[in-house]
Design a protein around this nucleic acid. Sequence first.
DNA 1: ACCGGCATGTAACGGGTTACATGATTTT
DNA 2: AAAATCATGTAACCCGTTACATGCCGGT
Lengths: 179, 179
Amino acid sequence: MDSKTLCLGALMLGDASGYEIKKTFEDGPFSFFHQTSFGSIYPSLGKLTEQGHVTCDEHEQDGRPDKKVYSLTDSGRAAFIKALTVKPKHDRIRSESMYMLFFAQLLDSGHVHKVFEGYLQGLRHNIETLSNLNDDGISPSRLFVRGFGKAFYEAGIKYMEENRHMVLNDDAVSAGEKS
Amino acid sequence: MDSKTLCLGALMLGDASGYEIKKTFEDGPFSFFHQTSFGSIYPSLGKLTEQGHVTCDEHEQDGRPDKKVYSLTDSGRAAFIKALTVKPKHDRIRSESMYMLFFAQLLDSGHVHKVFEGYLQGLRHNIETLSNLNDDGISPSRLFVRGFGKAFYEAGIKYMEENRHMVLNDDAVSAGEKS
DNA sequence: ACCGGCATGTAACGGGTTACATGATTTT
DNA sequence: AAAATCATGTAACCCGTTACATGCCGGT
């Protein structure tokens, strides 16, 4: 799935600028299963405009560059649906943190600790992000995906909290006193 | 984390050929949080050999090309540990299936059905893969990572089974009869 | 007979990340 | 005073995927 399709999907949620599309992938409903960067969004929007899949309204602004708000056209909507009507590729996950924790016995325990806590915090942050989304009037399938993300992350948090002793062999010490 | 580090990690589990390293990322303990392809493994092994991080033993074989079995050197082990002693990047997940399910209401229900069932099957397959691994004599941190993967996938399966009605609006019909 | 598994490797192509370039305004 | 937010865009580079090239063996 290329960056253009990702942009079309973001615009299915409503007109938006490139900047706002990026936020959708950071804080919005796609945050837990996709990510993009400006370097791919802006060129994609350019190509989509050429192809007639989106139109662009420029709003002048004080000081800042003009805000370019993109809207889907019928052809864009059709292209989006067509792009989604293929066999999906398998999920691709890359987790450096898990790779590090796997090799925890080789690493400095301070570092392992940081990685562990950082990962936990990341999971909590992701749940918060999903929980902050407004669910009013959202279709069941969208709620399903949100719920799936939450279920995933919650299971991860629960597991980590219950099994921290497997990676961190200092809990008894660091919990009480430091000497 | 580049492909070279990934190869070093695979070799930490024992000497292996490029072909076997790939299997480690497909069926082995890394399967759920990383993936690679021959196109990146073979060149990486070449570079690592040049750098002295691995050595290579060639075993002649009947018919097949020689099997090149790589082993870590001390310098390789040190390089690996150094590569892991940095702040990990955030997990990167890309799930085309979830993207499709999010937009289920736009898509042909037959296709949605296929995506849903395919995804569920994929989760089950992942759990099976993790369950087939031999846990004997494995360090706690490695078991932790395995358990994390299982907890993740199990939560996903449970959620999908309990909430299928949110995406699939044909369960009552298709469950009983087909007319 | 054909497909899948074993086994290594190269090359091109595509694509995305990162960094750079610019700059005002608001928050800390 | 510095950092973050808003806002767009380009370019280079890295790197990985995909496809190609080759070939035997075992199972169906």
